[in-house]
Design a binder for these strands. Structure first.
Length: 877
RNA sequence: GGGCGAUUAGCUCAGUUGGUUCAGAGCACCUGCCUUACAAGCAGGGGGUCGUAGGUUCGAUCCCUACAUCGCCCA
């Protein structure tokens, strides 16, 4: 065998094997007679590049898919991206601006061309990066939310819902992003505490010389005030009933009203009402039939209707208002104040509540099956603590604003004619004929129709993703959708539980009559060591590609998974992929030992090796069952840790050390063959976590034909194992550890053989030769009574002695025994106390009492042994 | 303000109907080793009154109540 480097070098193996897998079509899935295992990727945003969150999320999916594939399922992982209308449009607008082109100066069609150009150039980057990670997606199925089939599906669904009466157009207070010039959903607004000011402004009471005082953070909106309101129980304002006040700056006369909504404690207890610019004020406005004056233009400047400051920006207007109020004596004082400000997730602009005509999906009825599905576990959430959160949201679900004032996205298929009457249709032709019919004007022409300018929310495409990825809207009975739907598991972040996961479940029931996936595994967020969310602006996110170059893809995968129990945030640190890299190296070196080992078929298998093989196989079966259990519960980090310890501790630390022949001696052929077999089994177990190194080694473990691969090999299934044998080995471990400790304490080199003396029954198992091998003993001697000049230790009820040539330090030994005795006596006392408690004996289950009695007996026996030894030593002393 | 969840070793977390010597794992730390697979390693070791105060129980990390602190969601 050629010499192998002592450090594993991942780069070459990763390229080689990924190309091999692609070339052999191992990722490809088509329906067949096997059971499917389907995962639909949460489509990353086309504007994005791979970040740590993607790494965690996609590693998790790949582990699940690879494992399923090895278990004989027809595994299909469908990749794709979403078009991210706001983010992409912002990127394209910025790019055009850098080229001196104003969006307003080009047509919608030209803009869409630019957007496609941008998408084709940048949109595939993130998927290419996933390949570096080892993602075993069926790339032939790669999708995009704006490609033809997906576009058509979205339009069809819109029309269908509209015709079912679930989509309506209405005036609503929306979250307006004055920079992106679009409404954004509640979920896309991020509220944070910011420093601002509280302005105390006095309003003159009509017909009196008195004033009432109002506190506001937004003095510019005074221009839109149409009432002032106090709590009806607030005695300070009881005299205001039926009166009117004069709005400063505008001189407008408005009513003073009363409503429970007003918080008596806040400010002066007196609230100005601006129905057009505050959601709560809006509701009060509706309730009391107040006028609504929209003082802002779409871009956040003051409109003509305000009467003052027209054309100035809203923040500039605030300063002007402050000056004006101050000048007229209406401004009484200004205080520093911290309040929650909503900003657009995409543009960071401060959100302006705005009355606007939007399209809505009525959620109440359509969401019912989706709530039930999670409550009755048709769809299981992992971790299940999210069920409560889900229920709370679904029970208070609000209508979904699905229109966006953008160009990049599926254009709303509503066609207006006459005076804002409209029809909803899939094509212009259909729209025209419908409009002719509806208007009673058979001569209506295409030019008389005007399609709605707005597009649909990106989530309105992604909520159909599990269905549209198999073209299940356009072609509901095709083979793929029938075979792959519903998918097995969705792996995503808890932050999009509502605006994506819940909506997919809703769409699943509406369009397929059943759930889109059985399990939802919610990963945590990747944060930095200081618990800050990783973000571009903080610059605290490492570049995943650099990381993979440094630690290897396998190393990074292990690092991501090790510290990420479901639903818990992962605090990223370089030590994580480092641990992964170290593990890869450990595997590599164990492989080196095994593969470069000279063998000799004429040697008989040593007894220790024979026992070790049996023990190792049993251990593998035990751990396989544990790993299975971890996967069933989506405890993926636990499953990885179990595999990690199986390889590192059991296999490398114990098994290999037992079977390793003496220096320069060859290994017997049988053990070698069995070890290669065991190694192969271990590689299969580890493969889903570390696909590259396991393939590299698997290919070298035996003669492989072209087209063979570990990734399509059969995953070993747990077999029954002899628990008693594993327990006996645990005792062996304890004995070996104890002898090692004696060697270390007395500086006895490993080369120097020792004798282990034990009482009848303490040893004498199939593992005696293992003890001899691991402790370098010349023999295990069965003795009765104490041994002179020997170090001793006790395991369970047995006492062991290691005779030492230069004797022992009596004082030391006595001290040790005394400590052990004190501890055991203390323990015995607590057991006796328990057993002498009548209530305990009366109430505790039989099993527990038997156990306590055994503890008592064992402790007594141990104490006897210790006392005898002490007496013996003292007698000598 | 309303709801949900958490608090266990220096860090990140397990602890499955309350009962094995139950207080654990990984990492980090300390000590000794370059022992020919691996120093990206090996052999040992220290470290927690399980957030606080009560209660239920023969028995509480686990169940109940209050409080404290933190996180998330909603208003």
């Amino acid at each position: 065998m050629t010499s192998l480097p002592s450090k594993y070098e991942p780069a070459a193996a990763e390229n080689k094997w990924y190309s091999y897998w692609m070339e052999k079509g191992f990722f490809r899935s088509v329906p067949d007679g096997r059971q499917p295992y389907t995962i639909i990727i949460p489509p990353p945003n086309v504007t994005g590049v791979l970040h740590m969150g993607h790494m965690l999320n996609n590693t998790t999916q790949d582990v699940l898919v690879r494992r399923a594939r090895m278990h004989g399922f027809n595994a299909c992982w469908v990749p794709g991206t979403d078009h991210a209308s706001i983010a992409t449009e912002a990127k394209v607008v910025a790019k055009l601006r850098s080229e001196g082109i104003d969006k307003k100066s080009i047509t919608r069609e030209e803009f869409i061309d630019h957007a496609w150009e941008w998408t084709l150039k940048h949109g595939g980057i993130i998927l290419e990066q996933l390949k570096r990670l080892g993602a075993s997606c069926d790339w032939d199925r790669t999708l995009f939310t704006m490609d033809d089939d997906r576009y058509k599906s979205v339009i069809r669904v819109f029309i269908d819902l509209y015709r079912k009466g679930l989509i309506y157009r209405g005036v609503r207070m929306v979250n307006w992003d004055p920079q992106a010039l679009t409404a954004v959903s509640d979920e896309e607004v991020i509220y944070t505490e910011e420093q601002s000011k509280l302005y105390f402004v006095r309003y003159k009471i009509v017909g009196e010389d008195n004033y009432i005082m109002v506190a506001t953070t937004r003095p510019e909106t005074i221009l839109g005030d149409t009432a002032v309101c106090a709590n009806p129980t607030d005695e300070r304002y009881s005299g205001m009933r039926g009166k009117h006040v004069i709005v400063p700056m505008t001189g407008r006369e408005v009513p003073f009203i009363f409503d429970e909504y007003v918080d008596k404690e806040f400010g002066t207890g007196c609230l100005k009402i601006t129905p057009a610019h505050d959601i709560n004020d809006y509701e009060i406005g509706v309730k009391y039939n107040l006028e609504s004056i929209d003082i802002f233009n779409d871009d956040g400047t003051i409109s003509e209707k305000a009467g003052l400051f027209a054309g100035t920006d809203r923040f500039e207007a605030r300063k002007l208002a402050e000056e004006e109020l101050s000048r007229t004596g209406a401004l009484v004082r200004v205080e520093d104040y911290i309040n929650k400000i909503g900003r657009s997730e995409r543009t960071h602009a401060i959100i302006e509540p705005k009355l606007s005509l939007q399209w809505f999906l009525s959620m109440k009825e359509i969401s019912k099956p989706a709530l039930d599905a999670v409550m009755n576990d048709t769809v299981s959430l992992y971790p299940d603590k999210y069920r409560n959160v889900y229920r709370h949201w679904m029970e208070n679900v609000r209508d979904w604003c699905i229109s966006r004032q953008l160009w990049w996205g599926q254009r709303i298929p509503a066609y207006y004619y006459n005076n804002n009457e409209f029809v909803v249709a899939e094509t212009e032709e259909e729209a025209l004929s419908m409009a002719r019919k509806a208007s009673g004007k058979p001569d209506l022409r295409m030019e008389d129709l005007r399609q709605d300018e707005d597009v649909l929310d990106t989530w309105f495409s992604s909520w159909l993703w599990p269905i549209t990825c198999f073209n299940g809207i356009n072609d509901p009975d095709n083979e793929d959708i029938k075979y792959y739907y519903p998918s097995n598991v969705l792996v995503t972040a808890p932050e999009i539980l509502f605006f994506w996961v819940a909506r997919m479940i809703i769409a699943g029931y509406e369009y397929r009559g059943r759930e889109p996936f059985r399990d939802v595994y919610l990963t945590g967020l990747v944060r930095d060591k200081q618990k800050r969310k990783m973000s571009k602006s903080l610059g605290n996110s490492p570049d995943p590609i650099t990381l993979m170059e440094k630690y290897g893809a396998d190393g990074v995968r292990v690092g991501m998974l090790l510290c990420s129990p479901a639903g818990n945030d992962l605090l990223y640190d370089d030590s994580l992929p480092e641990q992964g890299r170290n593990f890869a190296n450990k595997i590599w070196n164990a492989f080196r030992l095994v593969i470069t080992m000279p063998t000799d078929d004429t040697i008989e298998q040593p007894e220790a090796s024979r026992a070790a093989v049996i023990w190792m196989r049993g251990t593998i079966d035990r751990v396989l069952a544990e790993i299975d259990d971890s996967f069933v519960r989506y405890r993926i980090s636990d499953a990885l840790m179990q595999a990690y310890k199986l390889f590192w501790d059991d296999f490398s630390g114990w098994y290999l050390e037992i079977i390793k022949p003496a220096y320069k001696e060859p290994m017997d052929g049988k053990t070698h063959r069995e070890t290669l077999e065991i190694f192969e089994t271990l590689m299969k177990i580890i493969h889903p976590f570390m696909p590259f190194i396991t393939e590299e080694i698997w290919q070298r473990l035996g003669e492989r034909k072209d087209g063979e691969s570990i990734m399509i090999a059969q995953m070993p299934l747990p077999a029954p194992y002899e628990a008693g044998m594993l327990t006996r080995f645990e005792t062996v471990r304890e004995i070996v550890t104890a002898v090692r400790a004696i060697r270390k304490e007395r500086n006895i080199p490993v080369r120097e053989p020792l004798v282990l003396c034990a009482t009848e029954g303490a040893t004498g198992t199939e593992f005696d030769r293992v003890i001899i091998r691991m402790c370098n003993l010349s023999e295990i001697r069965v003795v009765e009574g104490k041994i002179e000049g020997a170090a001793s230790f006790r395991i369970h009820t047995h006492e062991f002695f290691v005779p030492l040539t230069d004797g022992i330090d009596h004082e030391e030994e006595i001290k040790k025994l005394e400590e052990e005795l004190a501890y055991t006596e203390g323990f015995l006392a607590s057991v006796i106390q328990k057993l002498s408690n009548e209530k305990f004996v009366a109430n505790a289950p039989e099993k527990v009492i038997t156990l306590e009695k055994k503890k008592e007996a064992d402790a007594r026996s141990k104490i006897t042994t210790l006392r005898e030894s002490l007496a013996h030593l003292r007698g000598r002393g």
